[in-house]
Design a protein around this nucleic acid. Structure first.
Length: 473
RNA sequence: GUGGAUGUAGCUCAGUUGGUUAGAGCAUCAGAUUGUGGUUCUGAGGGUCGCCGGUUCGAGCCCGGUCUUCCACCCCA
């Protein structure tokens, strides 16, 4: 039989033991913070019905959803070739929907909304849940961009209070504090963006305006010429220009700690644009809650939350606050955490007037950042603490009960399963980074001890079985 | 989805205008060392030069296609 060269699909990865230990460190950190704030875990299937996902993420999002071909004969719905051709001609989307009824989940928020609607009678609101599972996107892979990656979501649904936004900011801050990654948390509000579109009298072309604003940080004043190319009038562009310079001014004031006066200035501009004004008020409220929480605190302990009115990213379903988190050190420029408030995600599934807000940590990107900056605590790499090495089967048998006692004391220990050359056994301990080795031969057996060696210092001493556990614990 | 770069041993990379049997370092394995790893010395294994086709007496090298990885756009964790 011809052998085939093994490979894995584009944009996916295997994780070796060392990587898994490190990834679990990230998951465990996030999970423990979520638990501390009272969030409960759920899981949902890897695949959803296509119609559950389609249309929730915008046009671009739909394109990036991984479709699952119907099992068995996926053309069985068609009676003959003519019907197939007719379906194809009716449009690619229609044809795909006919042969693919399921799709891999694109994020955790939409499946969560679906879950909430389906389980609304069992759920006590406000419902705080966390969910750590992989998602899939048929994107073109790049650095920090994968086709399969883990999201770690926390959402509160069934509460309009801005205290939830504040709590999520605290969670973000706490997680990255534990992971020792310094970050900036950018916040904006979709209502402000909507307000801008209204302010320049281009309510109907909201998305074009938003995309331009989002690009401001990257290409600066070029956005104005791009907008003109797209057919926006000089009047609109100059009005936007005026607003953007105000946005920059506001951000400067914010950095100087004069956020309050900056926001009041903004509210003036939005005097005749209620939705924009509402957005600014929400931001104002979030900041004042935070100052309440961190009153009398060292500035270093206060979350690095920055208002950035050019922040427009995030999925289509966001309606209120939006968040984006970036690492301040390292080469990864893309966001490692994002989120926002969505007012009517459950409405599509038949449960209107239920507002939710959530965040999502991108575990894979956080892993890349931690790796580059080498931010893992030392304990993370160590697994086994003690290895028994022996010379004979009799030695091995002698070790068995000791091994059992050590494990019972909660110490990770193993016995090298073959009585091979000691050099080989020692190399194994070294390669695995095991800090202690118990050498057992005829002498040790006679004296009812083990020769305990500290692999780091090279020191070794005879230790009685009773004292072994204390010695290495 | 659009544009660009890349691919040689497990890893990082050499490889001349196309010319015998494709190399190095690290890693692996064995030995030096029958009770001691991380240092040292000796030796060994390991390759369809991403894959398919073409040009040529002859291709790792030239041409076409394809896949992978990476970069920019788009979008996003």
């Amino acid at each position: 039989m011809a052998t085939q060269k093994p490979s894995i699909p584009k944009g996916t990865r295997d994780f070796s033991p060392q990587e898994m230990v490190r990834r679990n460190y990230i998951f465990d950190t996030i999970r423990s913070v979520y638990k501390k704030y009272g969030y409960l875990p759920i899981e949902t299937p890897a695949m959803e019905n296509t119609e559950t996902l389609m249309g929730k993420y915008g046009e671009e999002g739909d394109r990036l959803i991984f479709r699952i071909l119907n099992s068995a004969n996926y053309l069985s719905d068609f009676k003959n070739d003519e019907e197939i051709i007719a379906a194809k001609n009716a449009g690619f989307g229609a044809f795909t929907n006919k042969i693919s009824e399921k799709a891999l989940r694109y994020d955790l928020t939409v499946p969560f909304a679906r879950y909430v609607v389906m389980n609304q009678n069992e759920i006590t609101f406000p419902f705080k849940r966390y969910q750590i599972q992989p998602v899939w996107r048929a994107d073109r892979p790049q650095k920090g961009r994968y086709r399969e990656f883990y999201q770690c979501d926390a959402d509160v649904i069934g509460s309009n209070s801005l205290l939830n936004e504040v709590e999520l900011v605290q969670i973000i801050d706490e997680v990255f504090a534990v992971l020792k990654v310094s970050v900036e948390i950018k916040i904006n509000n979709r209502k402000i963006l909507a307000g801008i579109a209204e302010y320049v009298n281009e309510k109907d072309r909201f998305m074009d305006i938003v995309i331009a604003i989002d690009k401001y940080e990257k290409i600066g004043d070029k956005i104005y010429s791009e907008l003109k190319e797209k057919g926006f009038s000089d009047e609109v562009v100059s009005k936007l220009q005026k607003f953007m310079s105000l946005a920059v001014e506001v951000q400067e004031l914010y950095k100087e700690g004069k956020g309050k006066s900056a926001l009041i200035k903004l509210m003036d501009v939005f005097e005749s644009v209620p939705i924009g004004k509402k957005g600014v008020e929400e931001i104002y409220q979030i900041f004042s809650y935070l100052s309440q929480i961190y009153i009398d605190k060292d500035p270093k302990e206060i979350p690095n939350l920055i208002l950035d009115m050019s922040l427009a990213r995030g999925l289509n379903y966001y309606t209120g606050a939006i968040f984006e988190v970036k690492a301040l050190a390292g080469s990864l420029k893309s966001s490692i955490c994002g989120g926002g408030r969505y007012d009517d995600l459950t409405g599509i599934f038949g449960l209107p007037n239920l507002s939710g807000v959530g965040i999502s940590f991108g575990a894979d990107r956080i892993y890349d950042v931690l790796n580059e900056l080498n931010l893992y605590p030392e304990e993370v790499s160590a697994s086994t603490k003690l290895l028994f090495v022996t010379f004979s089967e009799a030695d091995q048998e002698y070790c068995l009960s000791i091994l059992q006692q050590v494990r019972k004391a909660g110490i990770a220990a193993e016995l090298y399963p073959d009585a091979v050359k000691m050099q080989k056994q020692m190399k194994y301990a070294d390669a695995k980074g095991i800090p202690f080795v118990a050498i057992v031969g005829e002498n040790e057996r006679k004296e009812n001890v083990v020769m305990l060696k500290n692999m780091k210092t090279g020191e070794q001493e005879k230790v009685a079985i009773t004292g072994l556990i204390e010695k290495i614990a």
